[in-house]
């Protein structure tokens, strides 16, 4: 039996995960022009919020718990923007200052999660076996199918939102020229608030699905963040299509890259891809 179908499936699953992080990361970058490293912690927070609900309210509907986890991550991202980034913007902080602040926020959120939930490995599925489907010669779990479907649906939905709604136009206006957006009467702070809510909620969903797929750990945010950042840069920072394309490419390169070698090389392969792009095509696949 060929290993190829499984490799393709694994690539798509990985791409789905990365896309769920990269989409929000890129959206936030488009509006604010800084690398929000705390974005990884939104995934962790979403995962643990769902975990908390499933633990505290035995018998709670799983979908409801996941939805509330997503909402929590979105609100956390929004509040973070309000409390930290917005204040820094008011003080005309540079993007480097915002980046460093976001790293600080990331560390704090990760530490708080570890304090509340311990550093122990947890799973959202509570040990219940996931249904496994055989699709074209590859074994894929229900969670993984949801992961891929969610990534595709959200990428398409985000594209539509940006293209068709007023909020989308306002986001693109802020992304193009924030000062002119203000002058023509766009409430740029409100727009950025929405962007943080939406982007963080998507990351929260990513964290929850990872929690069902492989499990939760307070430190999980960093590796998700790195994959999201690499996918964003490779795809083209600040664009929806870029995030999706970058995630897809990264997923395939990683999984096909370890075909003949040990899986421990995954990180090295991911960063090699990043370096290749930074050197030869720094604007990414889709140039803004």
């Amino acid at each position: 039996m060929s290993i190829l179908p499984q490799l393709i499936a694994n690539s798509l699953i990985a791409a789905g995960t990365y896309a769920l992080i990269a989409l929000g990361f890129n959206l936030i970058y488009a509006a604010t022009k800084f690398f929000n490293l705390a974005h990884g912690a939104m995934a962790t927070a979403g995962g643990y919020a769902a975990f908390f609900l499933l633990q505290s309210f035995v018998g709670i509907n799983v979908v409801l718990a996941a939805a509330l986890g997503v909402l929590f991550a979105g609100l956390l991202g929004w509040a973070l923007d309000r409390a930290v980034y917005r204040e820094l913007r008011k003080r005309k902080a540079s993007n480097t200052v915002l980046l460093v602040a976001s790293l600080g926020v990331f560390t704090v959120i990760q530490a708080v999660i570890a304090m509340i939930f311990t550093s122990q490995f947890q799973t959202l599925s509570g040990g219940a076996a996931d249904s496994v489907y055989q699709i074209g010669g590859a074994a894929v779990t229900e969670t993984q199918v949801i992961m891929i479907a969610a990534a595709v649906a959200i990428a398409a939905g985000l594209g539509l939102l940006l293209k068709k709604t007023l909020l989308g136009k306002e986001v693109r206006a802020v992304s193009d020229d924030e000062e002119v957006a203000k002058i023509v009467g766009i409430n740029t702070e409100r727009v950025i608030g929405w962007v943080f809510f939406i982007g963080s909620a998507i990351a929260g969903l990513g964290g929850i699905l990872v929690g069902f797929d492989t499990g939760l750990q307070p430190t999980m945010g960093m590796s998700l963040l790195l994959r999201g950042v690499i996918a964003s840069i490779v795809g083209g920072v600040g664009t929806v299509y870029g995030a999706a394309a970058g995630a897809l490419l990264l997923g395939f390169v990683e999984n096909f890259g370890i075909w003949k070698i040990s899986g421990e090389w995954k990180d090295a392969i991911a960063f090699s891809l990043l370096i290749v792009f930074l050197v030869f095509r720094p604007q990414g696949i889709f140039k803004r």
């Binding site: 007023l166 136009k169 206006a173 193009d176 020229d177 929405w194 803004r288």
Partner: peptide, 26 residues
């Protein structure tokens, strides 16, 4: 200074459309 990533029509619509919370979605 225009919104360069938007088409000509959108450059005006983003200014014309009412800026309230619900109007932002629909």
């Amino acid at each position: 200074r225009l919104f360069n990533q938007m088409n000509v029509m959108e450059n005006l619509l983003v200014v014309l459309t009412e800026k309230n919370v619900f109007g932002a979605i629909l």
